[in-house]
Design a protein around this nucleic acid. Sequence first.
DNA 1: CACTAGTCCTGCACGC
DNA 2: TGCGTGCAGGACTAGT
Length: 268
Amino acid sequence: MPELPEVETIANGVHERIHGETILSVWTSNKPQTFKSPPEVIAETLTNARIDRVHRVGKTIVVDLTHNKRPAQFLIHLGMTGRLLVSTPETPIPPHTHAILTLSSGRELRFVDARRFGRLSVASDTYAGPGREPLTISLEDFIALFRNRKTPIKAALLNQSLLHGVGNIYADEALFHAGIRPLRHAGRLTRVELTRLRAALIKVLKHAIKLGGSSVSDYVDAEGVAGFFQLHHHVYSRTGEPCRICKTPIKRVVVGGRSTHFCPTCQK
DNA sequence: CACTAGTCCTGCACGC
DNA sequence: TGCGTGCAGGACTAGT
């Protein structure tokens, strides 16, 4: 379940491996829902394009291209199980491979996605994402995002048109560190609470980026996102286990259709 | 417009 | 051991 820190680490790792290369050819699978742009448009845009930079906007990996001296972008959303692999052609093609880009070095960039929640597309304009970047939004803008919202703060944090990049894990962790219950109405949080929430969110995201950054090679080349499973969650997926601060059992509720974890003592 | 519920998809944990 | 069941969730759609 790659969220902002995972996507950023993967994008950086892929950038280091393949920037400057030219895409020689493109193969796509026949699973239509994987392709938000028509596969033939994707192939046309990518073939003979040079890869200038691989970076992240929200949860989307953005590949900046130059094609016939004009800019273009290849957008990769990993969904739940999407993986980007830089492989040699001799490496067996894993099941659920949906796109293969042959690069000028002879290697291949492969998109593999078992559950098929991932999406591939191309953009001619600069992709800006659906919302605001959690790591750079100002405090005043952050506070304004939640003003008058009646939805639970957890649901608001998952709303990508407000902040993009935050998913279920880091929403729960940020609310824990801010001491705020996930079912609180977003619009009723005080300035002080929202100030704490923004700080907590930035802290957990940056911490996760730091941990992931040291193990890039593990999951770009090899199996899945192993580097992230060692993350030290305080609440996520710890239902019934003792709170790391006060030992109260962590509770699980469903908010916005997502499982949500919190400490009934530490979070008010 | 704001918000919620349902949908997609497959691997895996779990229970008998 | 092996099978069946249910759960996981990001983003989109349809409905209130």
